[in-house]
Design a protein around this nucleic acid. Structure first.
Lengths: 175, 175
DNA sequence: TACTTTTGTAAGTGATTACTCACTTTTAAT
DNA sequence: ATTAAAAGTGAGTAATCACTTACAAAAGTA
């Protein structure tokens, strides 16, 4: 059975992703979760603390999405795997990724950890592939990654599979 | 001399871009602009009306960024021009573009007009270039466009010129 | 000049905000 | 069974929210 703490976290993530952090009041969260408003502050101190807990949990889960990378041998396979991540975000994780990308634009709340983590993996890959400028090349991949993730998350696109194919093809990666 | 109406528009755009629409109160806008709060509502009816006016004015200005396209003859040149737009956003327009991209994630406020306008131009280009699937190819370019614009707007990157070169090169476009 | 419209202000409005506090209930350990 | 800690509640708080209203100054028009 779900604890009330978990219920608050889930409900808040849901509302934050849908309406935005600032447009979602703690009273609305409490009402939607069916708990008293005071309990939110008992568990998370304040609204920012609630957001941080949501982000931390999401990060833990997203690490698992990245774990598949290290199991691959060839750097080209690793790159392919990474480029495919935006198209393989589990539907249950949409809310978290939406929140993550929406928060990017709020200077004070933005958390670069996930992005930086992935970027250093990509730099390693381009090093292994002997690219002349691995750092720059990684920056470019991250840009692609964000563009794709945005497209997937915002339009519930029916053609995301075709875009995925097009991307791999443009990156000279066999499908 | 700047009218108080213009002053409100500029100040609000600035604050919306920096802190977000919901985190910026009308009283803060009034204080920052040095006008009475009531004047905001005299001119724009309500806070959403203020946002709409800001977006409309920004759209008018961004149309000028797109006008250069039609002056070019070759479709390949047009494509090159479009891919370069994110790197050529005037610094004075940063606030507007930041606001535009931030708002994307708020379902109720998102305005697709600029994006759709540009996309139809890109579809035409790929038609002229006889690509097998111009619609899909345009979707991909728009994704690239958004990814690049995001990167340029969020990091005050010193290496954006190098990324620009890398992009044109990857897209087989002579620099 | 006389009059109308537009622009502007100051002081409000009720509703909502994040958060606190005093208190009760539940859980868990001895 | 006793007790202490943790979980949970409901009714508060002052501050801030978007917005209104009554009125004054300025600008435009005849």
């Amino acid at each position: 059975m779900k604890s009330k703490k978990e219920l608050i976290l889930e409900t808040a993530l849901d509302l934050f992703a849908k309406k935005g952090f600032n447009a979602t009041s703690t009273s609305k969260i409490a009402k939607a979760a069916g708990v008293s408003e005071g309990l939110i502050f008992r568990h998370f101190s304040n609204k920012d603390g609630l957001l941080q807990s949501i982000l931390d949990l999401g990060k833990e889960r997203s690490v698992k999405l990245f774990e598949g990378i290290s199991e691959l041998e060839l750097p080209a396979d690793k790159l392919k795997y990474i480029l495919q991540i935006p198209f393989n975000i589990p539907y249950t994780e949409y809310a978290f990724w939406k929140l993550l990308y929406a928060i990017k634009w709020q200077a004070d709340k933005y958390d670069e950890e996930i992005s930086n983590q992935l970027k250093s993996i990509v730099i390693d890959i381009f090093n292994q592939l002997n690219y002349p400028n691995p750092e720059l090349e990684a920056e470019f991949v991250m840009m692609l990654f964000d563009g794709m993730a945005t497209a997937v998350l915002l339009k519930d696109s029916n053609e995301s599979e075709e875009i995925e194919k097009l991307l791999l093809q443009k990156y000279n990666i066999p499908i």
